[in-house]
Amino acid sequence: MTSDSIGAERKVRVLVAKPGLDGHDRGAKVVARALRDAGMEVIYTGLHQTPEQIAEAAVQEDVDVVGLSVLSGAHTTLVPRVIKLVKEKGKEDVIFLVGGIIPPEDVAALKEQGVAEVFGPGSNTEKIAEFIKQKLGELAN
């Protein structure tokens, strides 16, 4: 039970953020809870965040994963902007995930810009946690 003991595995830290103007955070909260239940530390920053606020939070909180939930349709501008800002700040080793309402035809473009995976409505939350653990395992090797 000394999970925080010396040499123990480090905790996965995830930022769950809602960029832009839509006010729907049910999905983001469901995911935040599911990741908590998978043993991760989830920083939730609330609604209406600018890409600058999200990028700065990702840096200060030293997260492994940034999960962006967008239901406004502005994902094609907001998501790449967050990714660009995080990298500009000198934080390289981050996995970006996107959730919300993302038309299937936009998924490939988002992935090209650095998004590891897109999880739309109805995604299995356990799969999201598994995906994160698997990706972090790949990065560590």
Binding site: S3, K11, A32, R33, L35, R36, D37, A38, G39, M40, E41, V42, I43, Y44, T45, G46, Q49, T50, E52, Q53, E56, A57, E61
Partner: peptide, 20 residues
């Protein structure tokens, strides 16, 4: 959480106006 070892850290929500 004493069960999962995870946590939801939400204090930042009320401080985000100084986030940048």
């Amino acid at each position: 959480s004493p069960f999962s070892g995870g946590a939801i850290l939400g204090d930042r929500i009320r401080m985000q106006s100084y986030g940048t």
